[in-house]
């Protein structure tokens, strides 16, 4: 009963926030609503029993994306101050009919799907059965790396392409060199306590990912959060070029995954048929580094990093 009330409140909150994101009075309200939406979405995933998704959503959806949007908003304030006060969308007369039509369509789809018989054999069941035979205990990691490795490999490529895009437009997006913020003693104390803790949590998530909720994406996002914190405090500065080491770390995940994926071919196995827990951990660790650096650079909107 209490849980049903909580779920209904959660669903209503998500819908309300979604409306606010699209039709908020100002851009700033929409951005804040989007961040809170990500946070509630993480709670929703947790309620649905998907802790992996909840972790990723909280770290990337609410944390990193929210911070990135706020930073973009500040740049927008500097570049085009007149844009920030405007309403994003003017409400059209068609809005209500379209919303009603969508509701009817969703209800119809729901009814149709609810009427379908329970399938005898589903991909989820197959994946769980295959996970039990592998050395990987976490079904999510097993699916990501063992059963649909192609997909995960290309996700790394997407991150790299996004970084390339940032590297190309960075000069236009950052018209003036950012002023380093004035030193705050309290902030330094926070960094000294939080950054090592973040590295610890990231390492734990990576290690846990083999058998329990966690994995490369969550660990990478948590590590990237430490980078974001240091960037906001002025400890890390954007640079127009990546150093060779940074470029190497950016492609490390892709390289290690590709090499580990090609190796089975030599033994007559299919492409990307990773074998053994050690291989999985090696690929995950390399992915974590690339994801962390990639996300951090995307946040900074820069091709490379430098210290103060």
């Amino acid at each position: 009963m209490m849980l049903l009330a909580f779920d209904l409140l959660l669903a209503a909150g998500l819908l309300g926030l979604a409306v606010l994101v699209v039709a908020g009075p100002t851009l700033f309200v929409s951005l804040v609503a989007y961040t809170v939406f990500g946070l509630l979405m993480a709670v929703a995933w947790a309620r649905l029993g998907a802790p992996d998704l909840a972790l990723a959503e909280a770290a990337i959806g609410a944390g990193l994306t929210g911070a990135m949007l706020m930073l973009s908003y500040r740049r927008l304030l500097a570049i085009r101050p007149e844009r920030t006060g405007q309403r994003l969308v003017r409400r059209s007369r068609l809005a209500l009919p379209i919303a009603l039509a969508c509701t009817v369509l969703s209800a119809g789809l729901f009814m149709a799907l609810a009427g379908l018989p329970e399938p005898q054999r589903s991909a989820g069941g197959d994946a769980l059965a295959a996970t039990a035979q592998s050395e990987v205990g976490n079904p999510v990691t097993a699916v990501l790396l063992l059963f649909r490795g192609y997909d995960t490999l290309l996700e790394l490529l997407v991150l790299l392409v996004a970084w390339l895009g940032v590297a190309m437009v960075q000069a236009q997006a950052r018209p003036s060199a950012p002023r380093p913020p004035a030193p705050v003693p309290l902030l330094d104390a926070l960094l000294a306590a939080v950054v090592p803790g973040t590295v610890l949590v990231g390492g734990y998530l990576l290690h846990a990912g083999g058998q329990a909720p966690g994995g490369a994406f969550q660990a990478g996002a948590v590590l990237a959060a430490a980078g974001v914190l240091m960037a906001l405090a002025g400890r890390l500065q954007p640079r127009a070029r990546a150093t060779p080491v940074q470029a190497g770390l950016l492609v490390l995940g892709l390289l290690v995954f590709t090499a580990a994926g090609l190796w089975p071919l030599a033994a007559g196995q299919p492409l990307l048929a990773l074998d053994g827990l050690a291989t999985v951990y090696a690929v995950e660790a390399a992915m974590t580094v690339s994801i962390a650096l990639g996300l951090c650079l995307l946040f900074l909107g820069a091709a490379g990093l430098g210290s103060k």
Partner: peptide, 16 residues
């Protein structure tokens, strides 16, 4: 403790 630390510093920054 973590939330306490973070909120202390962020409140300090906003107030400053």
């Amino acid at each position: 403790l973590l939330a306490l630390t973070a909120s202390t510093v962020s409140a300090h920054l906003v107030a400053r």
